[in-house]
């Protein structure tokens, strides 16, 4: 089990105003699968991703991340758990504009304690793996949106994480590029690794092993996408 939410609730408070965004969520993210977390805007998808990754603390319930009860840990320790086990891919890439693609990946590895030479070597391999062998020294401003997202994926993969969280990773990309990016993420799933993507895009279901739907802060559907036909149907949408 890579991540597990048990009875998780999350309420935001601002003065006297309270907003309950998650209500009694039970969820598991497993190795060997790409899961999609879908739902309308404001349904609580991103908040759930934050809680599962330890970026936010749940108001009620418990969260385990890679076997560690992360919701009970102080922020610093939760950060260490993410540092070792988690990769992120974001809608807006969040790359350092001054750094080349290679350095955007390598510097994160260096931050994780890897020697720079080794970090650059691993980063190079990671970028080659996502098809950017000829873009290593380009800065984000010199890359297309799809290429930037590939750099972000390479950055997420470089630390060899067990779990990759993605928040609308295709939202800023055109249809074809978006599908290529998710296919790339799908290819990273293996026996020791899982991927959880937050998305609105039903076309991504063709790559999903599981679809989780959330509405008004509650899981309303959590089922495996078993048939290839269903995937094909989704792909045709």
């Amino acid at each position: 089990m890579l991540a597990q939410a048990r009875g998780v609730g999350k309420t935001f408070r601002s003065g006297t105003i309270e907003a309950t965004v998650l209500k009694n969520v039970w969820l598991e993210v497993r190795t060997g699968e790409l899961a999609l977390l879908m739902g309308p805007s404001g349904s609580g998808k991103t908040t759930l991703l934050c809680v599962l990754s330890g970026l936010l603390r749940p108001t009620t319930g418990e969260v385990d991340l890679c076997g560690v009860p992360i919701s009970r840990l102080p922020d610093r320790t939760a950060g260490e758990v993410r540092r070792r086990n988690v990769g992120f891919v974001f809608q807006t890439y969040n790359l350092f504009p001054a750094l080349s693609a290679l350095d955007n990946v390598a510097e994160v590895l260096a931050l994780k304690g890897m020697a720079l030479d080794q970090a650059r070597s691993v980063a190079r391999s990671s970028l080659v793996r996502v098809g950017l062998a000829d873009r290593l020294e380009h800065r984000p401003g010199e890359l297309s949106g799809g290429e930037r997202q590939r750099v972000a994926i390479a950055r997420a993969l470089a630390g060899d994480p067990s779990l990759i969280f993605g928040d609308e990773p295709t939202a800023a990309l055109d249809r074809q590029t978006g599908l290529e990016v998710v296919e790339l993420l799908k290819n990273q799933v293996n026996e020791g690794r899982g991927v959880l993507l937050v998305t609105h895009d039903v076309r991504l279901m063709q790559f999903a092993d599981r679809v989780i739907e959330i509405e008004d802060g509650q899981i309303v559907r959590d089922e495996a996408v078993r048939s290839a036909a269903a995937r094909t149907q989704a792909g045709a949408l």
Partner: peptide, 16 residues
């Protein structure tokens, strides 16, 4: 200007 990138590093486990 770089808060988003810094927040990304923090999400990836960078210490304060």
């Amino acid at each position: 200007e770089h808060l988003l990138e810094l927040a990304t590093l923090k999400a990836l486990g960078a210490r304060p």
